[in-house]
Design a binder for these strands. Structure first.
Length: 272
DNA sequence: TTAGCCCTGAGA
DNA sequence: TCTCAGGGCTAA
């Protein structure tokens, strides 16, 4: 599932392809994935140049010439593909953007349709709610503010890390990996974390995300780069998806528990 | 705070 | 044929 590192990777790759290029055509095949009125996509996109591409949490933000912004969320199985051939245009290709002077097209493809696309103008009230309420970015928040965010919360730390309104960008993979790196049991209540543990967690999150970005993200089921290549960070996972296997540090068997409806993998020895 | 829903394909 | 994967939203 695309989390911060995967989205960051896609953003970087998109810049090399569509920055400063003009959208020539918009084809909507599955209106259900549109999170804004269809007419906006049809009216506001054609003829507009891509001014800026960035990431906010797990959202891909594409600023267009004028005041409109496209927001892609990839959900679990969403992909943005840059393709010339028609191979990627199967029944899961929901939105297709063509660009001037280019045979390739930008294809939004999403098997489970948990993802979607929204469009906003300069009016902050028209931002998708989930964008408007996003918490701070892991790479921007200061250590003290991060600690303050968590230390009075009574919820379990794993669930809090998944809460996008608290901190933007972490999903199940990087929450598990960060907790392992920090040596913290995912079931621990945030309020019970010591100052030292909060410090370790802050650093662990940033290091894990940085390394994952450097590896081009984790390709597990559906996430691929816009040219179809895979990320490589899945090979470096310490706990995620490794239940029953020996911990790479201490060889204890990695456990899996269900927390807040999500599976969590951790090492019972290394994470207290 | 948590359960359930959306959705589809993979694997048992 | 059934179960599972889960991001984010809604209802209880």
């Amino acid at each position: 599932m695309p989390e911060l590192p995967e989205v960051e990777t896609i953003v970087t790759q998109l810049r090399a392809r569509i920055l400063n290029r003009k959208i020539s055509e918009v084809v909507i095949r599955t209106p259900a994935i549109l999170k804004s009125p269809r007419s906006l996509f049809e009216k506001k996109l054609p003829g507009k140049k891509v001014d800026k591409i960035s990431r906010r949490g797990k959202f891909i933000r594409i600023d267009l010439e004028g005041e409109n912004t496209l927001w892609f969320h990839l959900g679990m199985t969403g992909q943005l593909l840059w393709r010339e051939d028609l191979q990627a245009l199967d029944k899961h290709a929901h939105l297709i953007l063509s660009f001037e002077a280019s045979c390739e097209r930008l294809i939004f493809r999403d098997i489970r349709k948990f993802g979607g696309v929204a469009i906003s103008n300069g009016n902050p009230e028209l931002l998708p709610t989930s964008v408007r309420l996003l918490g701070p970015e892991p790479f921007e928040i200061q250590q003290d503010d991060f600690a303050a965010l968590l230390k009075k919360r009574t919820g379990i730390i794993k669930s809090l890390l998944l809460n996008q309104r608290l901190l933007a960008g972490l999903g199940n993979i990087y929450a598990d990996e960060s907790l392992f790196r920090a040596g913290i049991n995912p079931r621990k209540r945030a309020i019970r974390l010591t100052q030292l543990e909060l410090e370790r967690l802050y650093k662990a999150i940033r290091e894990t995300l940085r390394e994952a970005i450097a590896s081009g993200g984790s390709s597990l089921s559906d996430y691929i780069h816009i040219n179809g290549e895979s990320g490589k960070f899945q090979n470096k996972h310490q706990v995620y998806g490794r239940f029953g296997k020996p911990c790479k540090k201490c060889e204890a068997s990695i456990r899996r528990v269900r927390l807040a409806g999500r599976s969590s993998c951790f090492c019972p020895q290394c994470q207290k």
